[in-house]
Simulated assay, not measured.
Amino acid sequence: MLSVPWTRTVPPDAADGTYTVMVGRLRPRSRRGLLPVLVWAARMRPVLARTPGAAGHTIGVDVVRPAVWIVSAWTSRTALSAFDHGGMHRSAKVDLRTVLAPSTFAVWSCPAGALPPAWDEVRDRIDAVS
């Protein structure tokens, strides 16, 4: 899997306490569908960097079994929910609706010291809800 480095959006000295982690596996209906998903992911990265409550994020791409993996950490479940229902994210969900097969998501809490989650844990969390 190809991935971008974890981007921390909370200063290191503020990184204590418990965070909400959300992972998603987005599977395009065809290989051609990877491109629009990656374009939206690239557009989201700078938005996440300035979104209140976002603590960090990364994306990974599996080209063998086409999927885009999204991982983000939040200061609270409320902050995650606000982003999920926000304008740009809502637009992405509408735009990608016809491109994506049903996606799989997992959400859990973890201490600051466990960020970023390892890719093995991300896969295990998704497998547990699949």
Rank of each mutant, 00 (worst) to 15 (best):
M1P: 11
L2Q: 10
L2N: 05
V4T: 11
W6R: 09
W6E: 01
T7C: 14
V10E: 13
P12S: 12
A15E: 08
D16Y: 11
D16K: 06
G17A: 13
T18P: 06
Y19V: 02
Y19G: 05
Y19D: 08
V21P: 05
V21H: 10
G24I: 09
R27N: 04
R27Q: 00
R29G: 00
S30F: 03
S30K: 07
R32D: 10
G33Y: 07
L34G: 04
L34I: 03
L34V: 04
L34P: 06
P36N: 01
P36M: 07
V37N: 01
V37A: 06
W40I: 01
A41E: 00
R43A: 14
R43W: 11
R45C: 15
R50F: 13
R50V: 13
P52C: 13
A54G: 06
A55C: 07
G56T: 05
G56S: 04
G56C: 01
H57M: 04
T58P: 11
I59L: 12
I59Y: 11
G60N: 01
G60A: 04
V61E: 07
V61A: 03
D62P: 03
R65H: 04
R65C: 00
A67Y: 00
I70T: 08
V71N: 06
W74G: 12
S76C: 02
A79V: 10
L80A: 12
S81T: 15
A82T: 14
F83P: 09
F83V: 14
D84Q: 15
G86K: 09
G86Q: 10
G87Y: 11
M88L: 09
M88N: 12
H89E: 10
S91D: 13
K93S: 06
D95F: 08
D95H: 08
T98W: 09
V99L: 03
V99F: 01
A101Y: 04
A101R: 08
P102R: 02
P102W: 06
S103C: 07
F105W: 11
A106I: 02
W108H: 11
S109D: 12
S109V: 00
P111I: 07
P111D: 12
G113K: 13
A114L: 07
L115T: 07
E121I: 11
E121A: 02
R123W: 05
D127V: 03
D127N: 05
A128D: 09
V129R: 13
S130A: 11
